[in-house]
Design a protein around this nucleic acid. Structure first.
Length: 539
RNA sequence: GCCUCUGUGGCCAAGUGGUAAGGCAGCGGACUUUUAAUCCGACGAGCGUGGGUUCGAUCCCCACCGGAGGCACCA
């Protein structure tokens, strides 16, 4: 037996099934099922691989060894030898490790594709080089196995850069086969649940996360270059606040207290401004107990940055620089293409006030300072429903949200929001019906949100109390009165600008994908049904 | 939460009210420059789960489970 595969396949499960009904021995459906099940199991790739592993162990080969001395990556080989002419052979020995993605056996010659995180290179495996026995052992490797190789760099007749394998070692045996080598894995459910497979076979999946990590790194570096301090604040909170959203509620046994997962980073970061840290940011996960769709995942990543002595105009400049820098780092360009439209993220972006933009797009004059009846009449005229509780500010925001925002494609800073709909921002220095706030709109969607930060403790307490009243009245999105935060403000918080950017949505924009799940490695899914111990028979 | 669509062997994918194409992978064989290698051969699923209708269902109906898109809500 050349491969040393043990003979005598066990009779799977046969003995542990209930006996057939003695009354109807020939008609027992269970028995039929069982025979077929057994045959399927015996024929399964997984069962064959388990036997292969047993055979390797019998031959003294560890299918899961401990380490391998790689001396370079595939991309390093490509950089060094990329211009080698067709048919060249070098004396340079390289040691590479990666996953065997493809194998083409051809008699006494086998071609493989080895992939590491940097790229793929062909393996040229010759019986003449390895000897018949080692050559046969190479051919017993399976697509999907991790292998280490040593060999010389060469090119084939057709110019394909290859490593002529002189030695190889199995580094980890794959029990399950990779998806179709050409069609890949396209079932979205499987792609998200088994992201490890998705990342293995779908180059585009890997690309999206390279974009994501490059964007985050660029933002982090840019903020540190501006003397920002990166901090970490609690995820587990005893109070709900910092945004209007429904939280996840959990329980902390040691204190026997209800706790919340954070819905924003804002309040602890601004405490740090009180403490004199002056420039702080956090890139962190926040959690909102809301639905899932193409733009929402219950846990997502926010950047929040706060800068003392700055106001929202400074944050406008900062936002432009951060986003443009992230785009350049992640894609090599300031221009991204979204559904065939080029979007230019290079500074400076258009800046327009909310009321001016409404006027421009709809030809309608509405302002938070106008009488409520007048504002409501405008909504009626536009066919928008309104609620009796809304003031003119809420009406203005509604018009903007429903009819204006989605028309803005190129990056635009929309500033001066109604005070009524912005409870956390500082009142506008010239117009009490407004606050100093802006949002960045790109491709019809909000990408960033920023304020001149409210630092008046008396005003802040009043707003908290309003929220708490709403919460008491049953609004699950309303927050608590954070008295410690008010106390902090009473010690004095310097004037400051604050900025929030949704990292997931930024990544979607830069990577050109339409679903937030594409930019989250393990998006929230319902539990997988039907996966049990029985799916992992030991044969 | 609601609406629409969807779920076929490890992966991709046809299909019909009459008892499951094909491809890839895997298995056996041939082949020392292939690139989704090629060629030959043998094998593998009763069609998400549970009911119902029917002489008979993968295909029709109901419920449930998973997924996608849309709506509502929000970043």
């Amino acid at each position: 037996m050349p491969s040393g595969v043990p003979q005598g396949t066990p009779q799977v499960r046969k003995t542990c099934r209930p006996s057939p009904d003695p009354e109807h021995p020939m008609a027992d459906p269970d028995l039929t099922d069982e025979v077929e099940q057994t045959e399927e199991e015996r024929a399964s790739i997984r069962a064959q691989r388990l036997e292969k592993i047993a055979g390797l162990r019998q031959d003294g080969v560890d299918p899961y060894p401990y380490r391998f001395d790689r001396d370079r990556t595939v991309s390093a080989v490509r950089e060094q030898f990329g211009d080698l002419a067709a048919g060249e052979e070098t004396e340079v020995v390289v040691r590479l490790a990666g996953r065997l993605m493809l194998k083409r056996e051809q008699g006494r010659l086998t071609f493989g594709q080895l992939r590491d995180r940097s790229g793929e290179v062909q393996l040229f495996v010759s019986a003449g080089v390895l000897g018949a026995e080692r050559f046969a052992e190479f051919n017993h490797l399976d697509r999907g196995d991790w292998v280490g190789v040593a060999g010389t760099v060469m090119t084939t007749k057709k110019g394909e850069l290859s490593v002529k394998v002189a030695e190889f070692e199995l580094l980890s045996k794959a029990l399950r086969p990779l998806p179709d080598k050409w069609k890949g894995l396209s079932d979205v459910d499987a792609r998200y649940r088994q992201r490890y497979v998705d990342l293995t076979v779908n180059q585009d999946a890997r690309r999206v996360f390279e974009v994501r990590f490059a964007a985050i790194e660029a933002i982090r570096t840019a903020l540190r270059d501006r003397d920002y301090l990166e901090v970490e604040t609690p995820i587990l909170n005893l109070q709900q606040g910092g945004a209007t959203a429904r939280p996840f509620i959990t329980h902390y046994n040691a204190l026997d207290m209800q706790t919340y997962l954070r819905i924003a980073l804002e309040l602890p970061l601004k405490r740090l401004l009180v403490g004199g840290l002056e420039r702080v940011f956090e890139i962190g996960r926040v959690f909102r107990n809301e639905g899932i769709d193409t733009r929402h995942n219950p846990e997502f990543t926010m950047l929040e940055a706060y800068e003392a002595f700055a106001d929202y105009t400074d944050m406008m400049d900062l936002t432009e620089q951060l986003v443009a820098g992230a785009a350049l780092a992640a894609t090599g360009s300031h221009v991204v293409s979204v559904r065939g439209v080029d979007i230019d993220l290079s500074p400076s972006w258009r800046r327009v006030s909310m009321v001016e933009l409404i006027e421009e797009v709809l030809g309608v004059s509405i302002h938070p300072s106008m009488p409520v009846e007048q504002a409501r009449a405008i909504l009626d005229g536009l066919g928008l429903p309104s609620k009796p509780s809304w003031g003119a500010g809420r009406c203005t925001h509604e018009v903007y949200d429903e009819l204006v925002e989605h028309t803005v494609i190129q990056p635009t800073i929309v500033f001066d929001h109604p005070r009524e709909t912005s409870p956390l921002a500082k009142p506008h220095r010239r117009d009490p019906s407004l606050v100093e706030r802006f949002e960045v709109i790109v491709d019809g969607r909000e990408l960033a949100n920023a304020y001149s930060e409210l630092n008046d403790p008396v005003e802040q307490l009043a707003r908290f109390q309003q929220e708490a009243a709403l919460k008491a009245a049953g609004d699950p999105e309303a927050g608590d009165v954070d008295l410690d935060y008010v106390r902090a403000l009473e010690f004095g918080m310097p004037p400051a600008g604050g900025l929030g950017i949704g990292i997931d949505r930024l990544t979607m924009l830069l990577a050109g994908v339409e679903s937030i799940r594409e930019v989250i490695l393990f998006p929230t899914l319902r539990p997988e049904s039907g996966l049990t111990d029985a799916d992992f028979p030991s044969v």
